[in-house]
């Protein structure tokens, strides 16, 4: 299973991006080996609307098993729910630390969107 973390940069050392739909990129991490892959989100960054929907689609298509981010809006949340991907919100710090916290069982999935529509 891969963990998708919204990130401001393209490595494990990068800082987690609090925005899900308009995150700079997603770092997909294999928690067992800590190997990772980066997926740019630049197209969505400037989408006039529905950025969260497309971001959710991106992480689902890339086979994420769980999403770790800062905030997730209602539309992205429904898409992720449809794809059966749990979302963990309210996380900050480095991508690496977020994954470690997840591995240690310190993070639990949220049961709803953490922000209203159009939060940026």
């Amino acid at each position: 299973m891969k963990i998708a973390v919204s990130s401001k940069g393209n490595s494990l050392e990068s800082e987690l991006d609090a925005r899900f739909g308009r995150a700079a990129c997603f770092v997909f991490v294999d928690p067992n080996t800590m190997s990772y892959e980066v997926v740019e989100n630049s197209e969505n960054l400037n989408a006039p609307q529905g950025a969260g929907i497309q971001a959710a689609k991106t992480v689902a298509d890339r086979g994420a098993g769980v999403v770790i981010t800062g905030n997730c809006g209602p539309k992205a949340y429904t898409v992720l729910q449809q794809a059966d991907i749990p979302v963990i919100t309210g996380v900050s710090g480095r991508v690496k630390d977020a994954v470690e916290q997840y591995k240690n069982g310190e993070l639990s999935p949220s049961n709803g969107p953490s922000v209203d529509s159009h939060w940026r």
Binding site: P48, A51, A56, K57, A60, K75, Q82
Partner: peptide, 23 residues
């Protein structure tokens, strides 16, 4: 459908197509 929509209002996800009427 998703490819042609300029407004991200329709999206295929898992085994279904979701629409977002408000968009």
């Amino acid at each position: 459908c998703e490819a042609i929509c300029q407004f991200n209002a329709i999206v295929t996800i898992a085994d279904t197509v979701m629409t977002f009427p408000e968009l």
